[in-house]
Design a binder for these strands. Structure first.
Length: 598
RNA sequence: GGCCCCGUGGUGUAGCUGGCCUAACACGUCGCCCUGUCACGGCGAAGAUCGUCGGUUCGAAUCCGAUCGGGGUCGCCA
């Protein structure tokens, strides 16, 4: 408690708060020195806390002791300043700062903490080597960029939670140490001290538990769930991440979709994320998405959809195409508007590398020019073929047509990637635009091309599309499921499904992926048993919060929306985890490590 | 595991078709000066053997190879 000028306050004023209307008040601020401007006599200090920055004036004539005390203050020192807030003269107002009309005239101060010179500038958002930023994450987090990001993230999560509560969802925490399941991603394991040789796993998702919550009668469950998967990282993938996990009873797709649309749209707009998202979200079937965009997570911010040239190619004189079709492959193309001026070296170099990287053997191209069709393969096509290609692709004079011939999976992957590449390179969309949609009717199974092994596309508890049940045994790979994804700007941000609750059907699906009844009982017996005691029909969803925040803020890397992220090798560079432990700890757990040879 | 990109004082960049580099610029740091600045200003100083190792060459930051570190991507992520 302190007294001055008749006003009494025991409260800290946050640096971003003082306004002209507060002029004349005595206040105390705490914060970090953002900048100092020392005029020999007068010293100006910008003091920063998480709310903003305020200017402090230190006048040697009126407060000599304070001037002495702050003479040697450096950037990032932590200080307490007490003084009178005064209006600035009109000519000294700083328009660029919320607190720019006022300044605090210091009458007392103390240095709470000194600071070494930071390894990179904290008071500006300059580019800094990410290794350094991760190593000194607490300093990076102090910068305005990450301060803003983490606050926006918190606001978004608050919005999600509000919307969930408002819709009568019950927040339930599920265990972090669970039973390992061999399916799915690699598990992070936690050895048991009490049962030497046995381990827990960290959850890849709370899937089983949330379904058991449905059996338990909580008909609307949600959780901000942490999930861990020991797989290689990507720009949008961390080994641990956060999902808005949802499960609902007595529902179909429309109910799940409506709940999520309402929730995401509410939180999105409330937290001031960029763009705007419509409800309901558009829907696209998986088959249509693959056909039109070559991807199960299409970027619908721009057109340039895939064109099917298989029928032209079948009878064309271009043997590469005809043979691909004969081997039950296909030929598809992208029409690049005004692409006739694309340089040949660009197509044959960079663009060809893109499709080759996805398994295509090459990239064929034709230019539609004022002098007719041109390109390395034009001689293999009749006038009728060329005109058909032009019609199918909508390629008018000035356009280029880029073609890939191969198996359907390769064609889709190659052209899907090429389409994204060109979309970015040719600026085919507004970077601030947000496109959100459902992709529905995913295939129930997918097949490993190397081993032929069939596995669930989503997970083994996903219900079969009712129209496809009779093909489950005869043509399993053609069977659709009741699984769905949410996609934003070409990024998958969540997935879910309506679940199987019929034990007979569940056994059939297990058998289709090579799990017999005994094995099913062994691995998932607790779930199957639970379903014997009155299971409601149910379905749900898991939305990746990190990725939603990325899109909402326009960040291109997941590490920039996570407080303490890991690098590409899943190391945390600040604490240097993972790290070896004492032998005594291992001994207690009954385990011995096989260390790599030095 | 494959492929691609990057690595120069504390930070960010320039140089990188070999010699003029005894490595430049900005910010930061240190010292001196400065009472109305706000990316304050002025003067001065220190600070990098160019990730590491090896090779080519009369000569390497620059060319080649290996290696380490970081990133992107394919595989992987039920």
């Amino acid at each position: 408690m302190w007294r001055r000028g008749g006003q009494v306050s025991t409260e800290r004023t946050r640096c971003g708060e003082p306004r002209a209307t507060d002029a004349g008040k005595w206040m105390v601020i705490y914060g970090w020195v953002d900048r100092r401007r020392d005029h020999g006599g007068l010293i100006f200090l910008d003091i920063r806390d998480t709310s903003g920055i305020v200017q402090v004036v230190v006048n040697p004539a009126t407060a000599p002791s304070v001037h002495d005390a702050l003479q040697n203050v450096r950037l990032e020192w932590v200080v307490r300043i007490e003084g009178e807030l005064r209006l600035r003269d009109a000519k000294n107002i700083n328009q660029n700062r919320e607190t720019g009309e006022v300044e605090l005239h210091a009458t007392a101060c103390s240095v709470l903490s000194q600071a070494k010179t930071p390894p990179f500038p904290v008071n500006e958002d300059s580019e800094v080597d990410e290794k350094l930023r991760l190593q000194y994450r607490y300093l990076d987090l102090r910068r305005t960029r990450l301060q803003r990001t983490l606050k926006a993230r918190a606001g978004f999560i608050n919005g999600l939670r509000e919307a969930m509560n408002e819709q009568n969802f019950v927040e339930i925490e599920t265990p972090m140490m669970v039973r390992a399941t061999p399916e799915g991603a690699r598990d992070y394991l936690v050895p048991s001290r009490v049962f030497p040789g046995s381990v827990y796993a960290l959850p890849q998702s709370p899937q089983i538990y949330k379904q058991l919550c449905m059996v338990a009668g909580f008909d609307r469950y949600f959780q901000m769930a942490h999930c861990m998967r020991d797989e290689d990282l990507r720009a949008d993938r961390q080994p641990e991440f956060t999902q808005l996990d949802i499960e609902m009873s007595f529902v179909d797709e429309d109910d799940v979709f409506a709940a999520l649309e309402r929730t995401i749209a509410y939180a999105w707009h409330k937290s001031g994320f960029r763009g705007s998202i419509p409800t309901p979200f558009p829907r696209l079937t998986h088959a249509d998405s693959m056909r039109r965009f070559g991807a199960d997570k299409p970027d619908t911010r721009f057109g340039m959809e895939l064109c099917d040239l298989t029928e032209v190619a079948r009878t064309s004189g271009f043997r590469v195409f005809a043979e691909a079709v004969a081997k039950s492959g296909m030929v598809k193309a992208l029409c690049v508007k005004s692409g006739a001026d694309m340089h040949r070296t660009h197509i044959e170099g960079e663009l060809t590398d893109v499709v080759k990287g996805l398994g295509a053997k090459g990239l064929a191209y034709l230019w539609n020019t004022a002098d007719g069709w041109q390109g390395h393969i034009v001689k293999f096509f009749s006038e009728a073929d060329l005109s058909a290609i032009g019609d199918i692709c909508g390629a008018t004079v000035g356009d280029a047509v880029l073609m890939v011939a191969d198996r359907s999976s390769v064609v889709s992957a190659a052209l899907g990637a090429l389409r994204n590449h060109l979309g970015r390179q040719l600026h085919l969309y507004d970077p601030e635009r947000i496109d959100i949609l459902w992709v529905t009717d995913f295939p129930l199974f997918e097949q490993d091309e190397a081993t032929g092994q069939v596995s669930p596309t989503h997970h083994p508890f996903t219900q079969i599309h009712p129209d496809d049940i009779d093909r489950l045994d005869s043509e399993p790979l053609s069977v659709r499921s009741r699984a769905y994804d949410i996609v934003i700007n070409g990024r998958e941000v969540g997935s879910g499904s309506i679940r199987i609750t019929d034990p007979v059907m569940q056994r059939r699906v297990f058998r289709a992926i090579g799990i017999d009844d005994d094995e099913a009982q062994r691995k998932f017996g607790f779930l199957l048993d639970a379903f014997e005691y009155g299971v409601p029909p149910h379905g749900g969803f898991a939305a990746g919060i990190d990725r939603l925040v990325m899109e909402g803020l326009g960040e291109e890397n997941i590490r920039d929306v996570v407080a303490f992220p890991k690098n590409q090798q899943a190391q945390e560079l600040m604490t240097m985890a993972p790290a070896p432990v004492d032998d005594s700890q291992l001994k207690e757990l009954g385990i011995q490590l096989r260390r790599p040879r030095a």
